[in-house]
């Protein structure tokens, strides 16, 4: 270890005592003075403006502060995004009353869309809800089936006086309870 340190010190000393020398200092000096005489080297307005506007970015502590600030804003952005997403999820699970029907978080995504619709500050227009032709056909078919079954039931009651009496009594009792 000691030997290594000695070698290291010797090596450093070797470089220290051998200071590199310019081969042609006069020529270099003359080149510099020529440049200065041409007037190119005096700092122009453009350089002054650039230095004034952007020179500060070379200051170490300013750079570090900017990195810290940038990291902070990235984290803040991430946090805000997380909060917004959570709020949207909460809203999508809430009941929505648009005047004609209640909706609760459905798989069709209707409630999510309604949630976003509400977030945008608008009301759901219930009166304008459109119904497809297929839905109307389905509804008419159900009514017809219901009517046929109702007619069958009436016919059965007519044919059976005991059943008719029983049903009339039950209906009277129900009416009394309602009153």
């Amino acid at each position: 270890m000691e030997n290594e340190n000695k070698k290291y010190d010797d090596l450093i000393r070797l470089i220290q005592k051998n200071r590199p020398e310019m081969k042609h200092p006069d020529i270099v000096a003359e080149k510099i003075m020529d440049e200065l005489r041409k007037g190119k080297s005096k700092i122009g307005i453009r350089e002054i403006v650039v230095e004034f506007l952007f020179g500060w970015i070379y200051i170490g502590w300013v750079r570090k502060s900017m990195v810290i600030a940038a990291s902070f804003f990235v984290l803040l952005f991430g946090y805000q995004q997380a909060v917004i997403l959570r709020k949207i999820n909460e809203l999508s699970g809430q009941r929505i009353n648009d005047g004609t029907l209640f909706m609760k978080g459905t798989e069709s995504g209707l409630s999510e869309r309604a949630g976003l619709f509400r977030l945008s500050g608008r009301d759901l227009a219930g009166k304008k809800t459109s119904v497809s032709k297929e839905d109307i056909d389905e509804m008419i078919k159900s009514i017809n089936t219901l009517q046929i079954k109702y007619q069958d039931l009436i016919d059965q009651i007519k044919d059976d006086p005991a059943l008719k009496e029983y049903i009339e009594n039950r209906m009277k009792e129900t009416q009394k309870l309602k009153n």
């Binding site: 200071r19 590199p20 020398e21 310019m22 200092p25 270099v28 000096a29 510099i32 003075m33």
Partner: peptide, 10 residues
């Protein structure tokens, strides 16, 4: 320039 150039160079 003459005084400082050698130092700058080294």
């Amino acid at each position: 320039v003459e005084k400082e150039s050698p130092f700058v160079f080294s």
